[in-house]
Design a binder for these strands. Structure first.
Lengths: 331, 331
DNA sequence: TGTTATATTGCAAAGGTTTGCGAAAATGTT
DNA sequence: AACATTTTCGCAAACCTTTGCAATATAACA
């Protein structure tokens, strides 16, 4: 039978003490080269890997990060997740990924799970249902840093990385103005989350400022299905809009389906402007003009921020990433 | 200062022994109701959670699963990941997700990471570069069960869940035959992985069997970009195909971009048939006809299989899920 | 040779939990 | 009251690693 690869076994087999083996493997200066060599050879042979659990138990430093997100299968999040995972691996961390499915109770359970797994830090995109930040506060005060991203709490008391959401709205407004659109139908996601409110405010305020003659109607769509329906309704009116603004990929998807269903042509019959990571816009014909929100960039930023928090113990901070307009042919 | 919530501290505060506290918390029959009550109350108050690392160290049973995938931001995998995560949580497991980015070396590193984290089991979709199964074998013989999915090793010596790939090909062939297409251009992914070969064989053989008059040309596209280019080339010939078959969403995406770029109309100018999870087909106009491959279903199956392996210690097994044709208007 | 410095190594505790086994206390039996 | 049972609990080892400190061995020096 194969002996388990532990310090103890290596030590016994070599007739030396556990501590010597431990130090030899870490290249501690106290240990003679000869011993180090012996130890390393046997360790390699036995395929020794330190037991992460024992290490943690002793050192209290875990190399695992938690990531809680409403759902992974989301146009934006999965690129965020991919980026964080990559960066994490570079730094020697692993990533535990949890989905809260827009349910505050599951979110809380996931948070507990992170605590249970003694993660070194957590990334969180809030549920649209999250009202109570108490659990987050408890986790935080128990010493586990949290970096909020995308769907962040409004309160400035946290560490967060997000898009310049108000700017996104303004940029959309300026684009609409430049393209001389007159009747806008704007679709937004759940109004409970701050990014929705900010994007909406940015868009509406800036549009008003730019011109008193641009009509704007807004509606809420919590998912692709609702966006499809809302778009259908909007374009079926006698006096239909000349541009539809979609706050997210989820919504854009529904809008496109609706436009296809109605047999309308973009941009001849109707214009489309979206906020997106670019994937869906690029497979449309013509390509959709969009304001880019890159999950990859945000992910890298988030990881960097977490590392800072871990090192310097910051507890409040807000990082914002800019976004830019990518022109397709949809307006 | 707040005392840490550990068995020891609870024990001291209550003036009883650690073992009693431990057993009380697990509702062990040896402990009196009175004691249990006391213990539970204090534990609740202190927000006690067993230290997962210590538990593992003692029991050697971890509640964490590993998942290694070429990349999460893939049309198919992220729904798989989402499904596995959900099922895992139901069973009290957490999921560590790693990406190997189609690099066999990173794949190996990820495997080590799983071992290091002492996961209870691993899900793996192979890289197209993976040749050497030695590391997998070592992990397996070290007692960590591996369930391969989607991109699985050919050899029957493993536990795997996958689509009925040959059937997928055949179904495509029958559809092409039924729709009376005469000149097929079929795009496949990396030929090193078995699903490619199987789908291709299924399609080609069945097509030959059904009719000697259907022409079929095949090409390889390793990513969306290559698919775009290959499609562009194919439709630019004097005698262009009347149907394009796309083996995956990645490829379908490229094909659609190419068709859009060329200004061709589906299905009038050219037909399209894909293997897909349905998302992209549904946002096209007309919707693309596709053979469904559900990451969600496969994910659930994979989790179920892993649980079986964990319980019964099976070491070889192959589960196959059927797929069906979903008609759009693209043929 | 005795003394001191330096290079190597080992001891033992700690981290939090689980669990077999034995001890003590409570209850039941005659 | 003496004994047998049953109920309730504690002891201590084990899981594997890290690390401060003490111990030993070796070399250097006077």
């Amino acid at each position: 039978m194969n002996t388990k690869a532990t310090l103890k076994n290596i030590a016994t087999m070599l007739g030396i003490s556990i501590s010597t083996v431990s130090r030899a493997l870490k290249d501690h200066p106290d240990i003679s080269l000869e011993t180090k060599k012996k130890v390393r050879e046997l360790a390699d042979l036995m395929d020794y890997e330190p037991n992460a659990f024992a290490v943690y138990l002793r050192t209290n430093e875990s190399k695992v990060l938690g990531l809680i997100v409403p759902e992974i299968s989301n146009y934006f999040y999965h690129s965020f997740v991919a980026a964080v995972e990559q960066e994490a691996r570079k730094k020697g961390f692993s990533l535990i990924i949890l989905q809260s499915g827009n349910d505050a109770a599951i979110e809380e359970a996931n948070l507990k799970l992170c605590k249970l797994n003694r993660v070194a830090g957590i990334f969180v995109a809030l549920t649209s249902e999250t009202r109570d930040m108490a659990t987050f506060d408890r986790i935080k005060s128990s010493g586990i840093p949290i970096v909020f991203f995308d769907k962040v709490p409004e309160d400035s008391n946290y560490v967060k990385v997000c898009l310049a959401d108000r700017e996104v709205g303004k940029l959309a407004a300026r684009t609409i103005f430049d393209k001389k659109k007159k009747k806008v139908f704007a679709l937004f996601g759940n109004p409970n989350i701050s990014i929705t409110r900010k994007r909406k405010q940015g868009l509406v305020d800036e549009l008003k400022k730019l011109s008193p003659f641009i009509e704007i109607a807004t509606a809420t769509a919590n998912n692709t299905e609702e966006a499809l329906q809302a778009t259908l309704d909007a374009v079926s009116q006698k006096n239909k809009p000349d541009l539809i603004f979609c706050m997210s990929d989820e919504i854009l998807t529904g809008t496109i389906m609706a436009i296809n269903k109605k047999g309308l042509k973009i941009p001849k019959d109707i214009g489309v402007l979206a906020v997106s990571n670019g994937f869906i816009p690029k497979i449309c014909n013509p390509e959709i003009t969009y304001i880019e929100t890159s999950g990859t960039i945000l992910g890298k930023k988030a990881m960097k921020t977490l590392m800072e928090v871990l090192e310097k113990g910051i507890t409040k901070k807000m990082d914002v990433i800019e976004s830019k307009l990518v022109e397709g042919g949809s307006i």
